[in-house]
């Protein structure tokens, strides 16, 4: 698994070069989009949590809720990418990519779950605190 990840990273450089040269293979561009979705989730989590805490929500709760939502959004986005990818019927897609994709989805789920659990705990503690 770790080696596959290294390979993807190794591949990423030429992919980025290819993209910049307009010679990007479809599957690679999906991968890039997948990674970019992380950035977007991060930005979403930050924006939501600031907005919620500004509206009076407990900061921790807002942060955890935003993170959980961002990870779920990322999964949805990733699945959407995979669907698009699958519809291109690219046979040369390396098997490793599926594995990595599955790994990322799993990490997303774990992180979303952790964030949600933290949110519930934080909410309870906060309520205890302010009650």
């Amino acid at each position: 698994m770790f080696n596959n990840l290294l390979e993807i990273v190794k591949d990423l450089g030429p992919v980025l070069v290819s993209i910049s040269q307009g010679k990007v293979p479809l599957q690679n561009s999906i991968l890039v989009g997948y990674l970019l979705a992380y950035a977007m989730a991060f930005l979403l989590a930050r924006a939501w949590s600031r907005e919620d805490s500004a509206q009076g929500m407990h900061v921790d709760e807002a942060v955890y809720a935003a993170w959980a939502t961002a990870f779920v959004a990322h999964i949805v986005f990733s699945v959407a990418c995979a669907f698009i990818w699958g519809s291109q019927n690219v046979e040369s897609t390396p098997a490793a990519n599926y594995s990595i994709f599955s790994l990322f989805i799993t990490i997303d789920l774990i992180l979303a779950y952790m964030a949600w659990k933290h949110r519930v705990a934080a909410r309870q503690e906060w309520h205890t605190l302010i009650s």
């Binding site: 991060f42 989590a45 930050r46 949590s49 600031r50 805490s53 407990h58 900061v59 921790d60 807002a62 942060v63 955890y64 935003a66 993170w67 964030a115 933290h118 934080a122 503690e125 906060w126 605190l129 302010i130």
Partner: peptide, 25 residues
């Protein structure tokens, strides 16, 4: 309450704010 070791908030730059809020509470 978890003190100030909340990396989740730290990642998105709200650690101090969260800590202040918890201390006040």
């Amino acid at each position: 309450l978890g003190g100030d070791s909340n990396v989740w908030a730290a990642v998105i730059g709200l650690k101090d704010r969260a800590t202040e809020q918890k201390k006040a509470a």
